[in-house]
Design a protein around this nucleic acid. Sequence first.
DNA 1: TAGATTGTTAATCGATTAACAATC
DNA 2: TAGATTGTTAATCGATTAACAATC
Lengths: 233, 233
Amino acid sequence: MPVSQAPKSHVGARGGIPDATVSRLPMYHRSLVALSNRGTILVSSEELADAAGVSSAKLRKDLSFLGSYGTRGVGYEVEFLLYQIARALGLTQEWSVVIVGVGNLGHALAGYPGFASRGFKVVGLFDADPALIGEEVTVAGRAVVVRDVKELAQTVRSTGASIGVIATPEASAQQVCNSLVAHGVTSILNFATVLLEVPEGVHVRRVDLATELQILAFHEQRKSQMVLAQETA
Amino acid sequence: MPVSQAPKSHVGARGGIPDATVSRLPMYHRSLVALSNRGTILVSSEELADAAGVSSAKLRKDLSFLGSYGTRGVGYEVEFLLYQIARALGLTQEWSVVIVGVGNLGHALAGYPGFASRGFKVVGLFDADPALIGEEVTVAGRAVVVRDVKELAQTVRSTGASIGVIATPEASAQQVCNSLVAHGVTSILNFATVLLEVPEGVHVRRVDLATELQILAFHEQRKSQMVLAQETA
DNA sequence: TAGATTGTTAATCGATTAACAATC
DNA sequence: TAGATTGTTAATCGATTAACAATC
């Protein structure tokens, strides 16, 4: 009884790109940019998968969710596929971003060259520390002045920024988050250790440096245990 | 025909903790530390799951891979569970870490308070820039001097550091990685955009700020598309 | 004993993979 | 036509979830 027609197509078809696939699209995008810079015209799924560090089967499956952008027996046109992935990710439009917290991490983020090249425009830098307010930070060649976090509302409203980055100490993260959300930000990248409470519809991604190190430690420990087990055996 | 006995138990049983579970252990650890600081003695799976932002079923399933550390009808002892998770993650031992690349990001990492409190000791800071070499950076109350990346080998050997953090520009990342691996580092946290080539047995985790922002942009775009679709309908 | 909560089971779901038909 | 490579299928695998028996 083949009843497997409707259920899967609901997810796989129009619009619904699996999370696992979305998380790999930036890698494909980056690999294609590198190929493009080298002047490569065509690329096979095998070559691109190699560059991105995945299997060719996975790559083809992933791309199939975006559409049918290759040519059988030939491969993919680099520029065309690059555009299609950029479009799927939303990189063909400009996104206004505000960064709250301009300590070392905030500085690192503001100076990150990967932002501007992918359509992210830092329209505001904010901090609560008077020592930092007024400082000029060079972001993608433009000078951006660090402003008081109290002026956040105005900037978010006037620029229509929909993405906010929180790089503050833990203690102020939730408060900053509330303020961002209240003024129209609906996507937040959180570098603070706390789990943010947000209303439904607001998307939060948390990047925690300690988490990454801890996972690394776990694997490191497992290695030494394996060595020990071998010695015992 | 119930043949499902051996296959699953191979992964679920001794030692083999699923990747998805490992990735959540740091969150549980953090939540337990918070509870411990508040003086909480006992916690139920429901409460802890809430604090960590997961379902109680998922939490109990995750914890069951570590062992049976709760009491039915009662809950989990905070201090005991905290220790067990720390032990599983390898946080009961000290890990020596070297950080290569002491720009804004490297500074942010070195100054990150979450390192020392979880047993990570920064034993070396390295850079290739003469302007940075010699600078004293305060790491967990100790002064650590930034040294020339050429002296990396000596420090890794003498301290037995097994974890390396790469916060260099893209161009030097692979070279630094090779050097780390050559001198005994077997786990690497990579903040550079490139995909590092490493020999088998070396564990690499990559954290890419641009990737995170791109995934955020994807979801943000999907929201606006949904709004558009609603308006059309 | 009655109430509470864990640890485990089994069903479901989503992601991965290998194989290959479609097609350039 | 022969060779190459995509896009899709179907099988497998791992993760999630709800329900509940075990047990404090």
